Simulated assay, not measured.
Amino acid sequence: MSNEAYVPAQYRHEHTPYRRAGRSGLRLSPISLGLWQNFGEDRDPRTLRDIVRRAVDLGITHLDLANNYGPPPGSAETHVGRILAQDFSRHRDQLVVSTKAGYRMWEGPYGDGGSRKYLLSSLDQSLERMGLDYVDVFYHHREDPETPLEETMGALHQAVVSGRALYVGVSNYSPERTREAARLLGEMGTPLLLHQPSYSMFNRHVENGLLETVEDLGVGLAVFSPLQQGLLTNRYMSGVPQGSRAGGSSGSLSERQVKDPDYQARVRGLSEIAHQRGQSLAQLALAWALRHPQVATALVGASSVHQLEQNIQTLDNLSFTSEELARIDEFAVDGTGR
C-alpha cells in the first residue's frame, strides 16, 4: 500500500448496477463491505486499509458496521474511523456508513437491548470511534421484548431528527415486528429504510413471510451471511483448513458442521452448478441471494483484496434460468450446516 494520498478510481461507478433501497431514493452497491468478524485488532491495519480502498475503487459505496464488531467490540469502528480520516475525509458524501446497537456492548443495565438510553448513547460512542458527525443508516440490531417497541423506534426517530443518522433500519426482526416498527416510525415521520436479516442458500427464513412484508412496506433488504460464514465456499470441501473458522475452539463454525455428510453432498452439488455457470461457489451463492428485487445489497466480508475482487466478479452474472433455480433448490436446504 502506498503512502501517497489516495484518489478513488475515476470510473468506479460506471459498471456497478446500484439498487434502490425499497421505495427510497437511496441506492446501494449490490455487494457491500460487511465488517463483522474481520476488522478487529487481530488484523494488520495496512491490510484493512487496502481492502477498503480497493472496495471503493470497485464501486462499493456501503460500509456496514455495528458497535460490537471486532473483536474486541468497538475495534472495527475504530479501524474504519482511522481509514476514513486517512483516505476519505474529502469523499464522505460518496459513502454510505451504517452502524447498529442492540446486543451487549458494555456492562451494567444500560449497555444492551432497545432502550432509548442505550441506543442513543451507543450511537454517540460509535460516531466518536469513527470520527463522524453522522451515520447514513442506524439500525436496531435485534428485537428486545423487554422494551416497548414505541421507545425503541422513538430512539431511532430521535437519531434522525438530531442529525446523527440520515436513515434508520432494523435487523433480525420478525415480519410481524417489522410491520409494527414501520408503522410506528411512519407515524413519527421517519420511514423505515432497511431490514438486515441473515439469508443464504442454507438459511432461507426470509422466504417465510419477510420478503412479502418488506415488499408491502417499501423497505429494502440488506442481507448478511450470504456465504453462511464460509460454508458456501469451496473452503471446506476437502477438510478443515488451519486457521479457518471451523478450526479451533474459538471458531464460529465447528468441525462437525463442515464434515456433516449432508453438508458435503449439498455443497458439492451446488459447486457443480456454479462450475457450469462459470462461477465459484461463493459467486453462485451471492448471485442467488441477490436474485430477489427486495434485496438492495448483500453484505460480504473480505480477509484480503483478492477475496474482495473475486466477490465483486459475481456481478458479471446475476441472472438465473428457471431450470438452474430448480436444480439449486435440490441442494439449497434450509438448516444445512447447523
Rank of each mutant, 00 (worst) to 15 (best):
L194R: 01
L253V: 09
S304Q: 02
S2W: 14
G154E: 05
F331L: 06
Y69D: 04
L325A: 02
Q37K: 04
P71M: 06
G243V: 14
D50V: 02
S2P: 14
A155K: 15
F224H: 15
L227I: 02
G248M: 10
T233P: 05
L211A: 02
A296P: 10
I273E: 09
M105A: 15
R20F: 15
A246M: 13
S98K: 05
L232A: 09
S89H: 00
L193C: 00
V168E: 02
R90C: 00
H306T: 14
G34Q: 11
N3S: 15
Y18D: 10
D334I: 11
D133R: 10
H306R: 15
L156I: 10
R179V: 09
G163T: 13
L26S: 01
L231N: 07
E14D: 08
P8M: 08
A302E: 06
E212V: 02
N208T: 01
L325F: 08
S24W: 08
A289I: 07
G108T: 07
V295Y: 06
Y263M: 13
R20M: 11
M237G: 08
R49V: 03
L193A: 02
D133K: 11
I51C: 00
D57V: 02
G301I: 11
E176S: 13
Y199L: 03
D42G: 13
G163H: 13
D260H: 12
G102I: 02
S2E: 15
E255Y: 08
G169C: 01
V223Y: 07
F320T: 05
E41T: 12
D57P: 03
L166I: 12
L281M: 14
S24E: 11
D316A: 00
A287I: 08
G113Q: 03
E14C: 03
I51Q: 00
L149F: 13
G337V: 04
E41Q: 12
G114V: 07
V97G: 09
G220L: 12
L65V: 06
T314Q: 00
D133Y: 04
Y69R: 02
P175W: 01
Q257A: 10
N311S: 13
S244Y: 07
S271N: 13
R129Q: 13
T99D: 05
A326F: 04
G209Y: 00
V223P: 06
T16C: 14
S249A: 14
M153D: 07
